[in-house]
Amino acid sequence: MKKIFTLIMMLAATLTMQAQDTWTVAGETAITGISWTPSDEANDMTTTDEITYTLVKEHMMVKAKDAGYGYKVVKNHSWDEAYPADNALLVINEDAEYKITFSFNSQSFEVSATAEKTGEYVAPEGDQTWTVAGVAELCGTAWDPTLTDNDMTTTDQVNYNWKKEDVALDKNTPYAFKVCADHAWDESYGNDEGGNYEISVNEPGLYTVEIAFNSNTKAISVTTTKTADHSFAEKTWTICGKAELCGSEWDPADTTNDMIKTNEGEFTLVRRNVALIKDTEYEFKVAANHSWSESYGNDMGENQVFKLDEGLEDGNYDVTFYFLVEAKTLWAEAEVADPAGVTTMKADKASKFVIYNLQGQRVANNYRGIAIHNGKKVVIK
Score class of each variant (00 low, 15 high):
Thr46Trp: 00
Thr46Ser: 15
Thr47Gly: 09
Thr48Trp: 03
Thr48Gln: 14
Thr48Leu: 04
Ile51Trp: 02
Ile51Thr: 14
Tyr53His: 07
Thr54Met: 04
Leu55Asn: 01
Leu55Tyr: 02
Lys57Asn: 12
Met60Gly: 05
Met61Pro: 09
Met61Ser: 14
Val62Trp: 00
Asp66Trp: 12
Asp66Val: 15
Ala67Asn: 14
Ala67Val: 12
Ala67Met: 10
Ala67Ser: 15
Tyr69Gly: 01
Tyr69Arg: 06
Lys72Tyr: 14
Lys72Ala: 10
Val74Phe: 02
Trp79Gln: 03
Glu81Lys: 14
Glu81Cys: 06
Ala85His: 07
Asp86Ser: 13
Asn87Ser: 13
Ala88Gly: 07
Leu89Ser: 11
Leu89Pro: 01
Leu90Cys: 10
Val91Ile: 15
Ile92Ala: 08
Asp95Lys: 05
Glu97Thr: 02
Tyr98Phe: 12
Tyr98Glu: 02
Tyr98Leu: 07
Lys99Cys: 00
Ile100Glu: 02
Phe102Leu: 11
Phe104Tyr: 11
Asn105Met: 08
Asn105Thr: 10
Phe109Ala: 04
Glu110Cys: 00
Ser112Pro: 11
Ala113Gln: 07
Ala115His: 08
Glu116Pro: 05
Glu116His: 08
Glu116Gly: 04
Lys117His: 06
Thr118Ala: 10
Thr118Glu: 12
Gly119Met: 11
Glu120Gln: 09
Tyr121His: 03
Val122Cys: 07
Val122Trp: 00
Gly126His: 10
Gly126Lys: 13
Gln128Ser: 13
Trp130Gly: 06
Thr131Phe: 06
Thr131Val: 11
Val132Arg: 08
Ala133Thr: 14
Gly134Tyr: 13
Glu137Ala: 15
Leu138Lys: 04
Leu138Gln: 05
Leu138Trp: 08
Cys139Val: 01
Gly140His: 12
Thr141Gln: 13
Thr141Tyr: 09
Ala142Trp: 04
Trp143Ser: 10
Asp144Ile: 03
Asp144Asn: 15
Pro145Arg: 05
Thr146His: 08
Met152Asn: 05
Thr154Ala: 04
Thr155Leu: 04
Thr155Tyr: 01
Asp156Ser: 07
Asn159Val: 03
Asn159Tyr: 03
Asn161Ile: 05
Lys163Trp: 00
Lys164Phe: 03
Lys164Cys: 06
Lys164Arg: 15
Val167Pro: 02
Val167Arg: 10
Val167His: 07
Ala168Glu: 13
Leu169Ile: 07
